[in-house]
Design a protein around this nucleic acid. Structure first.
Lengths: 233, 233
DNA sequence: TCGTCAAGACTTGTATCCTAGTTTTTATCC
DNA sequence: GGATAAAAACTAGGATACAAGTCTTGACGA
């Protein structure tokens, strides 16, 4: 009866390759907002026809990463202030809920996991491993969600975080902010381990708040990358 | 100079028509989970080629509404328990945050808006206008977000609500639940108007909780529509 | 009657052509 | 030289043809 081969994660096709490639290029800011990209151009570069590129464009369009207009050049979407506010709000709401859950449910094993996260972060800080720290940052927030038994919360946090991280590449290097971020994480971990939900949420919100200044600075510095910012007339 | 024509809402093309049509069909459950849909079939029905249908499929695929597998029939995605849990969690988190904002910022004008919402709901209840009530339900939650000056929060609430509403069509009619829902809304509105954030959140969470029983009932009744529910062997 | 297997009718993936609109370039006129 | 208009190059939308799998169905044999 063949059993449909136990759903082996559908064969990867060209469209996946291209969509993933463009996703990485855009979210890593190697493709700047406003950059024009052409189906034909990408197709030639990959040595395929326009068709799979079109499909990839449609996917990215749904993710609001590119702007496709009939008969006009497709371009990488600019940042939207409203989208950033929304992202920040959602992330704050979800992160607060996850922290409350984590504080309520954290046991010895969870505390150990958090300690391990913090230790790795301290190590990265000491070694000035800025690139590695980004991954550890994700791991920390993921661990919080896992301790709170709300793994899906991390899906949301990551997806919102990616949107803002793209922005922050424009700002100052992480070098200056890293010590503060590690200290924040320590405060959060301590509160969670103590089961003090309110303190954990307060610390978490303070942590998120660090982004606000960074974003405000980028907004004036890179106004050309924002779409809902009227040029001064 | 030219000012890029003030982004005049791009021309609507065939792909939008088809994607919207399929979106409505799926979210309204006229197309049941597991139903197979074919590019060719839809194309013939719309009198167009496969191309725009294909583009629409890609859009819906990104929204997780359909499952496209190479060389195999495309089908309407089944419900996922994990997706429902995620949706419920996100909505609870965002709704709680919006209620806190609303309670903190509600003024006389906001109170008046809430009263107007409630009055319309009472009217719909008295007239047994179940269809109309659905719209009023959305309006109420939208008003909360507007009072809290977090309009983007409603984008999230609506999108999560749509996912679950699709499910609830499978359950009992709204007829039985309507009085309870209106009472919930009244409790929420009263707390918001009084500026009592914690009471508003408590009432809001109780309101959301009504869904849990409904969903649990649907889960056993319509197990065939769920994808991550192993059939009893 | 049941199992096996092969043919054919599906499915989506990819390539290519044409069309209609936009943008840029170039030529022309003042 | 600068403004204007024609023309060429470029854009994505749509239609069609073919390729490469998958599924169904029915014939055939045990």
């Amino acid at each position: 009866m063949a059993k449909t081969a136990a759903l082996p994660a559908d064969k990867r096709v060209t469209v996946d390759e291209i969509a993933d490639y463009l996703y990485r290029e855009i979210t890593s800011l190697r493709l700047l907002p406003g950059t024009r990209i052409s189906e034909t151009d990408i197709a030639m570069r990959f040595g395929v026809s326009r068709q799979p590129v079109r499909d990839a464009f449609r996917r990215l369009e749904t993710m609001d990463l590119i702007l496709v207009r009939a008969k006009k050049a497709t371009e990488v979407r600019k940042f939207s202030i409203r989208a950033i506010e929304k992202s920040r709000f959602v992330r704050a709401a979800v992160e607060a809920a996850a922290l409350r859950q984590a504080a309520a449910m954290c046991d010895a094993a969870g505390g150990f996991q958090l300690d391990a996260c913090i230790a790795l972060q301290r190590k990265a800080l000491a070694e000035k491993d800025f690139a590695g720290f980004a991954g550890l940052d994700y791991d920390f927030h993921k661990t919080i969600c896992e301790i709170g038994k709300v793994p899906y919360a991390f899906d949301v946090i990551r997806s919102e975080k990616e949107k803002v991280d793209r922005l922050c590449i424009l700002g100052l290097s992480k070098e200056d902010r890293m010590p503060q971020l590690v200290a924040d994480h320590e405060a959060i971990a301590t509160a969670v381990k103590a089961g003090d939900a309110e303190r954990a949420v307060t610390a978490g919100m303070a942590h998120l708040g660090r982004l606000d200044d960074t974003i405000a600075a980028i907004l004036v510095q890179s106004a050309a990358f924002f779409e809902d910012l009227d040029p001064p007339s």
